[in-house]
Write a protein that binds this DNA or RNA. Structure first.
Length: 510
RNA sequence: GGCGGUAUCGUCUAGGGGUCAGGACACGUGGUUCUCAGCCACGGGACCGGGGUUCGAAUCCCCGUACCGCUACCA
């Protein structure tokens, strides 16, 4: 089995295309097949080397590795269409010689007029066939006179083209509704429908798995396979990915590219898992009926084992970022904290919490990470969740009317003052020591529950909400003990915070 | 316009001639006795419409409707 993903390098890798790549990859990896990356850059106008590099980077990031491709090499190269021009040329010539193709001198303007007329008259909008009957001599004469013709494929008349789509079953087209397609443009570049056929055939692709937008192109291509004497691959057409309004997912729906989702802080394994869920269910193949568990959260290698084209859904799916976020939360929870710490660093810097942690700094970040990774949707939310460790400003906290209000309460003030006293002589807090201190405060002040813990939270974290105190406070004190050269910002310890808070409180309440 | 494709909760889906039409995300309620997030429990919520076949249709067939794609010297 040989499958391929053939993007055109004219922009970012769209998640819909990433899903197509993924399904190809899953099939290849699940069946011991070969996965090929081919760059379809015959449109020189739009193709750029930067886009190609970006697509390659994004595929790698997703973990979709290929066995043959522009960088990987392989026995069926080259893998960039721009480097295969001589091949298209020779096959086009073969078709021309066999009279299966002909030169077309129609101008695009003329073509457009004909198209509009056909549409207006209610006829199928297809090439009228003006140059179909030009003799070889006539054509040669016009070329000699300096005209630059395109080459069109002669579609056989009055025939059915039938193929069995691996996801939809039998699909049938009548050739009379298919206009003769251009296979070589006037500038000498091959057109898509021609280049794919030549490439897929020469690369011995056995399963062409691509977007549904190509289903109507398939009969043209099949006819080309036949004319060229190539044997047919199996075809499978995947339904498209839509936006919430059920139109194809595009910019106006928000993020659409793999790169954007990466920079928002989604994990690659989450994106991949979620993408597979659109149009495919890991349970479908096993016909499980009970489920109820995490049946949809399946790592990519496991998906490869279960994946089958026959189980792919027929209808377009709406991209639901809420569900992506849910999948991402799952992978965030099971990810290695050190990895998450490393991945989070750029987001901290973006958020103004400047850091360049060394191993010790990273280890500290990782230890604090559990507070965030269990409760955040994406990596870019980590800094906000952990900001309480890095920023502390008692005066600013007391500037909040709600906080000041709460501190009007005698009980709350007693808790905070006692806290400062306890901490003044206490060692740095770990979980147990904090609990001991909390108990101490409880007996000293008589406060309990919310009346006890909330003032503590306010005084030590400067915030009314946040992670559990017995996680946050130890993290703060671990941070306070970090050596100055660990590449982390200076972190104020709980003792200092309590003292600062009481001092600020004294200034405010008098 | 022509041709092709598709149609189960708001969303992703399972199933498929007789089921209480199952699950997940989201949503609502309650719990987790510091808060937010999370987590847990419970709850509401669907077979596009019309014909036909059949004892019985959401399931099979036909028609319609809606949506998507192709109809390019884009891919």
């Amino acid at each position: 089995m040989r499958v391929r993903f053939a993007p055109s390098p004219s922009g970012q890798l769209h998640v819909g295309n990433a899903r197509t790549a993924l399904f190809n990859w899953l099939l290849a990896r699940g069946r011991g097949g070969t996965f090929i990356l081919r760059i379809e850059d015959t449109d020189a106008e739009r193709s750029t080397r930067d886009s190609e590099a970006a697509i390659v980077r994004d595929l790698r990031w997703l973990g979709l590795d290929w066995d043959e491709g522009p960088d990987a090499g392989g026995s069926h190269g080259p893998y960039r269409q721009s480097e295969r021009l001589h091949l298209y040329e020779s096959y086009a010539q073969e078709l021309l010689n066999a009279d299966a193709a002909y030169y077309c001198f129609c101008s695009t303007a003329q073509l457009e007029v004909e198209r509009q007329e056909a549409l207006a008259a209610g006829r199928p909008a297809r090439y009228a066939g003006t140059c179909r009957r030009l003799s070889r001599d006539q054509a040669q004469a016009r070329i000699a006179a300096g005209e630059r013709p395109a080459v069109r494929f002669r579609v056989p008349e009055n025939r059915d083209v039938v193929f069995t789509d691996a996801v939809r079953g039998e699909v049938r087209f009548h050739t009379d509704v298919i206009g003769d397609p251009v296979i070589v443009r006037a500038d000498g570049h091959p057109a898509y429908n021609f280049a794919v056929v030549v490439d897929d055939a020469l690369m011995e692709v056995t399963h062409v798995i691509r977007g549904e937008d190509h289903i109507s192109n398939t009969p043209r291509q099949i006819l080309l396979y036949e004319a060229l004497g190539f044997s047919l691959p199996a075809f499978a057409h995947l339904a498209l990915v839509m936006g919430p309004d059920h139109s194809p997912l595009s910019k106006r729906h928000g993020a659409t590219s793999v790169a954007e989702f990466r920079s928002k802080g989604y994990l690659p394994e989450a994106l991949v898992n979620y993408l597979a869920l659109i149009g495919w269910s890991p349970r479908g193949s096993t016909h499980g009926r009970s489920a109820g568990d995490d049946a949809e959260l399946v790592p990519i290698d496991e998906m490869a084992k279960r994946f089958a084209l026959e189980d792919v859904g027929h209808s377009a799916g709406v991209f639901d970022e809420e569900k992506l976020a849910w999948v991402n939360r799952h992978y965030l929870k099971i990810a290695d904290p050190i990895r998450l710490a490393e991945l989070s660093v750029p987001y901290f810097n973006e958020a103004g919490i400047r850091m360049a942690p060394d191993a010790r700094g990273l280890e500290f970040l990782a230890s604090a990470m559990t507070m965030a990774s269990a409760s955040v949707d994406r990596l870019n939310q980590v800094p906000a969740r952990l900001a309480l460790v890095f920023d502390y400003d008692a005066a600013a906290t007391l500037g909040d009317p709600h906080v000041r209000d709460e501190m009007q309460n005698d009980g709350a003030r007693a808790v905070v003052r006692a806290l400062a006293e306890e901490l003044a002589s206490a060692p740095r807090l770990d979980r147990d020591r904090f609990r001991a201190v909390a108990n101490q405060l409880k007996t000293r002040t008589g406060q309990k529950g919310k009346a006890l813990f909330h003032p503590i939270r306010l005084a030590l974290t400067g915030r009314a909400e946040g992670p559990e105190l017995d996680l946050a406070l130890p993290a703060i004190d671990r941070g306070a003990e970090l050596p100055a050269d660990a590449g982390m910002p200076k972190i104020l310890g709980n003792r200092e915070r309590a003292a600062a808070f009481v001092a600020a409180l004294d200034r405010v309440v008098d």
